[in-house]
Design a protein around this nucleic acid. Structure first.
Lengths: 157, 157
DNA sequence: ACATCTTATGCAATCTTGTTGCGTTTGTTC
DNA sequence: GAACAAACGCAACAAGATTGCATAAGATGT
């Protein structure tokens, strides 16, 4: 975990970050790991993989801890867990408006995922008898800005 | 091996199966593995995991071969590869009408996937500038018939 | 500020899914 | 039936994610 001079942790007046606020609101412990990971997610404008998150976190944070924090964030419905075409989880902060209907774009070249906010999803596919719908997810497949022009980047993770 | 009497190849008396036909039409080799796997997929009314397919195939067929056959079927666009919420690929036969717009239902309890045919997908979410759409996938999340009623089954695979 | 209790963390080991390399077998063609 | 390429089986490997357990750190009461 991070160096954490006394000032950096408690007396910093500027911002009890939005992340910290959100975590505290759950009633669970406000830990460094949770704050750091959540701040990374909030700063990113797109879905991040576990790797990207681990790399973006400022201090060293154990791989497993990142997994556990992400799992916790997902259970708290603060984050959203997206299965990708490369078999890798990606995570985004889950805005409240996105609770039920949610659209993603996934690049077929680099597998990046971004969230699409303005979804015209008044869409209700009919399910077989006995099935219960809990929401609809729309995923647009295609090429992202970076991959559409030149030779594809092939980032993958 | 010459034109093979029915019994000499398999116990299935159902003549030259639709599966065999389909494979032959691609111009590639018509092998036991391909026939068996494709028949399993055609018989199933839903998306199957690698495990399910391997278990359903009558004779012993190597794990890796099943993977390779599935990969080949996907490349031939005979099968369709679906990423699930449990990090496991699922495969279905790809009907021709499903080519571009295709909806799935995925159970949040047991992760089973079924195909929904009648999708009213006249839906075109707006993408950021520079992005290129190649198709839209709609996934309905919820509980399947088996999981909606009693205590959820939690099958997972 | 300190003791205490609980929960989260770090580390190592493990599991699961899927892939690769390579020698052998099997379809297909002639 | 021979010859050749394409599939197959086996073993090893790889990557992502999970689990068990001892230790550290947040929260709470005094």
């Amino acid at each position: 975990m991070r160096a954490a001079t006394p000032e950096s942790r408690r007396s910093s007046p500027a911002a009890v970050s939005a992340a910290e606020e959100l975590i505290r609101a759950t009633g669970a412990r406000v830990t460094q790991g949770r704050i750091l990971v959540l701040e990374v997610l909030q700063a990113a404008g797109r879905a991040l993989t576990h790797h990207e998150i681990e790399a973006a976190v400022t201090g060293p944070l154990d791989r497993v801890t990142v997994y556990r924090v992400l799992d916790w964030l997902t259970r708290q419905q603060i984050a959203h867990k997206i299965p990708g075409d490369d078999r890798v989880w990606r995570f985004t902060i889950a805005g409240q408006k996105q609770a039920h209907h949610h659209a993603h774009f996934q690049c077929t070249d680099c597998s990046q995922v971004i969230c699409l906010d303005d979804v015209p999803t008044t869409l209700r596919p009919r399910l077989p008898a006995g099935y219960r719908s809990a929401g609809v997810e729309v995923t647009v497949k295609g090429q992202c800005k970076a991959c559409v022009r030149p030779a594809p980047r092939r980032v993958r993770r």
